[in-house]
Design a protein around this nucleic acid. Structure first.
Lengths: 189, 189
DNA sequence: TATAATAACTAATATTATTAGTTTTGTAAA
DNA sequence: TTTACAAAACTAATAATATTAGTTATTATA
């Protein structure tokens, strides 16, 4: 009704995050978002470039927050303990903010420079945790890929109800990471 | 133009798979699919229930095929060698049929009975490969979750260009699986 | 050969994103 | 204090989509 709703880009993004977390990122439409903000759909275009742009913003914010969650969880910890904590933080983030996590894991392409940057931060964080292991740069990068694959795969399958057996899920995650880390300590061949 | 195009459900599904593999599952619209089949959009409804149903069919077919690819790859192999082969088959399938793989990994929910069934087949296959390891049922199920998380996570990240460093990707996959399997051989504690 | 089932069609509707152009409001300069 | 401008909302219109209803032509079958 009233002109000047006091909307800005951040408010729109926050509302979009809420909608995505509650209803899933597929159900996040500009029509529904505008209704939630008591505004007509075209008004959103004063704050976003369009739906694809909004989705990209969700992905970027998600990457930033999930990295922050890992950093936070690893404070005061080192080596295996730090990696374990980071891995759990990743999965717990995906549980708490399923829509945001969906946005991370369904982004069409990492080619976008802003997403690239956000993704790099995750990789750099993991490399720093791995530093005390004394791996070569190449070895460390392979480990980073392994770690990311594990936690992303776990969170993704869990998100889609891919684990249906009656079996503690945290225990599965813990074992996977511990098993991998044990393998890392053991000399190859 | 001509009535009776000779369309049936399987033909429609095949065309949908092709479109998804080439253009991505997001771009798979009934409008485009109908055009490809030289038919008007509503005609598709004689063979499918709607777009969500078609997506579900893609997911189911994808799960069946990826399981078959793993079975095929593991023929004549056992234990670590079989798991390694199955893991690579999984990732290679995702590379060859990106749209179908996307359909597997973006299915909204495994709750659907048909998808449940197809997913169970994958789990049962992995359990059979794991049999010679002499694990308890519970232990084996945790390992299955770990294995699925690893290969799905790897394929998913690779699909979205998540691996951007100059680093051989097959080598990363090989190391991840080997490291995990080595950890599995090593006693816990 | 007649009839029933099926597969295509046209027409219509509802939803969506997006663009263009307009009106109102808040802010800053005169 | 008034005026001018930028910004944020609006209305109206368009194009694309999926879907449903109802119709017509074709095939198969009784």
């Amino acid at each position: 009704m009233a002109y000047r709703q006091g909307l800005d880009a951040e408010t729109v993004l926050q509302a979009a995050i809420e909608m995505a977390d509650v209803q899933g990122v597929e159900q996040l439409t500009l029509a529904a978002l505008a209704a939630k903000l008591n505004v007509k759909t075209p008004s959103l275009y004063n704050h976003i470039k369009g739906l694809p742009d909004l989705r990209k913003q969700l992905s970027r914010r998600g990457l930033m927050l999930i990295k922050e969650a890992m950093v936070e969880a690893a404070i005061g910890k080192a080596e295996d303990e730090a990696l374990l904590a980071a891995g759990f933080a990743y999965v717990i983030f995906a549980r708490k903010q399923p829509g945001l996590y969906e946005a991370i894991s369904s982004l069409p392409d990492y080619e976008d420079p802003e997403l690239k940057e956000a993704g790099s931060q995750v990789v750099l964080f993991l490399l720093r945790i791995l530093a005390p292991y004394g791996l070569s740069e190449e070895d460390a990068l392979h480990v980073v890929r392994g770690f990311r694959s594990m936690v992303h795969g776990f969170a993704s399958l869990e998100h889609r109800n891919g684990f249906r057996m009656e079996l503690e899920r945290d225990e599965s995650l813990h074992r996977m990471l511990k098993t991998y880390l044990r393998g890392l300590r053991t000399a190859a061949e």
